[in-house]
């Protein structure tokens, strides 16, 4: 694999592997078992920090639409609803995370994957495009962290 890229979040370096594509909702995606596997990027994980609780509001084999709400996450620093990264069918959610979501923090690009999906019409980005996307949004994100949503 080619050296991963890193996006500097202040002093923290968010690692972005080059062996996958990226979505605007800060998930990565990678082909697996004839489907696409999705997980959080290190950028998202850094913002959230330790994941305490993960809950999916839809089950396996569910057809979803882009930006449809599919779950909720609570972490040491944040909480958020979670949304489908594209249209398609979510075939299965990572079962081990429901027991213990800490794999997201420990191995976000590996065992901490979130779900596998038959994805259609995915608007995904290359790692370079995602870097540029993060760069463009970084000031806004920092303002948002200051809380003025």
């Amino acid at each position: 694999m080619i050296e991963p890229l890193t996006f500097m979040m202040g002093k923290y370096a968010a690692v972005l592997p080059t062996d996958r594509r990226y979505c605007r909702n800060h998930m990565w995606m990678q082909p697996a078992d004839g489907m696409q596997r999705f997980g959080f990027t290190s950028y998202a994980i850094r913002l959230m920090q330790d994941v305490y609780f993960l809950d999916w509001s839809v089950g396996d084999d569910t057809n979803v639409k882009l930006k449809q709400q599919i779950g909720h996450i609570e972490t040491s620093k944040a909480m958020s609803d979670l949304f489908a990264p594209c249209d398609g069918m979510i075939v299965r959610f990572n079962p081990s995370l429901l027991e213990d979501p800490s794999a997201i923090n420990v191995d976000g690009y590996g065992n901490g994957w979130l779900f596998e999906m038959q994805a259609t019409g995915v608007g995904s980005m290359t790692v370079e495009e995602y870097m540029a996307f993060l760069d463009a949004g970084w000031e806004k994100t920092q303002n948002m962290l200051k809380g003025h949503m």
């Binding site: 800060h26 972490t75 944040a78 948002m144 962290l145 200051k146 809380g147």
Partner: peptide, 17 residues
Amino acid sequence: VGAVGSLKIDLTRLFGG
């Protein structure tokens, strides 16, 4: 700035909400 004690940041917008 940032999270305050038990009060958490809402990242919903960042994640596509």
